[in-house]
Write a protein that binds this DNA or RNA. Structure first.
Lengths: 202, 202
DNA sequence: CCTACCGATCGGTAGG
DNA sequence: CCTACCGATCGGTAGG
C-alpha cells in the first residue's frame, strides 16, 4: 500500500501505485478532511510531484468517492453477514453492534472520512451512501422493535435507540488507539454490551 | 442575528452586524465544513461583497475560533452548573448526560462545527479546546467510578462507557430535526436514560 | 515519472 | 459599504 521505497522527500526510487495514493489520501483526508487536504500534500507524502498523481487516479473527487463508497458497501455487507442465519433477536443485535464497533476500531481512517466528508461527495453518489446508512439505522430499529415484541427488549423509542447505538459505535474511530490498553475486539465486545443495554435487554 | 433587511442578492438595505456574520458562518461551516466554506459564500448569504466582511471580523480563522471556544466553554459551564450541589451520583450522571444531550439538540450547528473542525483550529487554541473536552470525559468517567464504588452502577470499563455516553449525545446534532416527532427535551430525557443504562444502573 | 503552465479561486488589503 | 487588486495556491492539463 505504500510507495515502493521510503516515502516523502523524493529520495530513492519512488514508484507509486494506485493503492499507495489511496493510502496516503486515507491518512490525510482523515487528519485534515477532504477540503483541508491539497493534492500537493498527498504528492509530498508519496515523494512525487502533484501532476504525477494523475497516473494513478482521475480526479481528487474520485479518491473520496472510492473510499466512501467501498467502505459503506463493506459495512453493509458485514452487517448482513453478521446476522445471516441467526435466529435469536438479542444475538442479532449483539452481532450487529459488535461488527460495526469492530470495524470502527480497525478502520479508523475510513470511518472518519465517511462521517466527516460524505457531504463533500458529488451527487448522485452522496444520496446513495446516505441511503445505505439509513438502511443500517432502520435495520437496527427493526431489530429492537422485534425484540420488544418478543419481550426481550424494553426500549420504547427504537428509532432513537438505533441512532444512539450506531453513533456510539462510530465514535470509536475518534478515540481508539491501536497501542492503547484495550484491543479492538475487547472494545467491540464492550460496546455491543452497551448496545443491548440501550435496547433495554431484559 | 440576520442582516437588517432580507439576506442574499443584495437587494434593499443590507446592513450587517458581527452577529449576522457569525450566524451565516455557523450555518455554512456546519453544512460544508470550515475548509469547504469560502468567505465569498458567507458574503453572498449576507448580500454583501467579500471585503465588506472585514468590517465585522478580523480573519476567517477568528470566526472558527470564536464559535468553537465559546461553545466549548459554555458546554463545560453547563455541566458544572448541572451537577452543582447534587448529592446523588446517579442523579449527577443523569443531569450530566441530559444537559449535554439537550445542548446538542438545541445548538446543532455549533456542535457539528466543534466536532468536525476542531482540527482546523490554530494552536494553541486547539489544544485548549481538546483539554476541555478531555476534562468532560474524565468527569463522566469519575462519576461512573464513584457510582460503581457506591454500588449504584455496575459498569467495569468507566473510560469506555464515558466516551460512549459523550459521543452518543454528540451524535444527536447529526440527526435531530426541530420539526421532527420528538422535542429536544424529550430526546435529552431519553438519551440520559441510555447513559444510565450504559453505566450499568442497578 | 517530470517540467511548464493553465484559469479559477482563495483569504486578505488598499483606499475611498 | 464598495471597487480594484494582491500573491498564493488550488485542481488539473500538455507534452514529453
Amino acid at each position: 500500500m505504500a510507495s515502493s521505497k521510503t516515502s516523502a522527500r523524493g529520495e530513492a526510487k519512488t514508484t507509486v501505485s494506485p493503492g499507495a495514493v489511496r493510502d496516503a489520501a486515507l491518512t490525510l483526508f482523515a487528519e485534515r478532511g477532504y477540503h483541508g487536504t491539497a493534492l500537493s500534500q498527498i504528492a509530498d507524502a508519496l515523494g512525487i510531484r502533484t501532476p504525477s498523481l494523475y497516473n494513478h487516479m482521475k480526479a481528487k473527487q474520485d479518491l473520496l468517492r472510492d473510499i466512501i463508497v467501498e467502505t459503506s458497501e463493506q459495512v453493509w455487507a458485514e452487517h448482513e453477514q453478521a446476522v445471516h442465519g441467526v435466529g435469536d433477536v438479542v444475538e442479532r443485535l449483539r452481532r450487529t453492534a459488535r461488527v460495526y464497533a469492530l470495524r470502527h476500531a480497525t478502520h479508523r481512517r475510513e470511518a472518519l472520512i465517511v462521517n466527516r466528508d460524505v457531504a463533500s461527495l458529488d451527487e448522485p453518489v452522496r444520496s446513495d451512501v446516505l441511503e445505505l446508512r439509513r438502511r443500517h439505522a432502520h435495520a437496527i430499529r427493526d431489530l429492537i422493535e422485534e425484540g420488544v415484541t418478543a419481550g426481550r427488549f424494553t426500549e420504547e423509542e427504537p428509532t432513537l435507540a438505533a441512532f444512539g447505538i450506531l453513533e456510539m459505535c462510530v465514535s470509536i474511530a475518534r478515540w481508539f488507539r491501536e497501542d492503547g490498553p484495550q484491543s479492538a475486539e475487547a472494545v467491540a465486545e464492550t460496546y455491543s454490551r452497551y448496545a443491548l443495554r440501550i435496547a433495554g435487554l431484559n
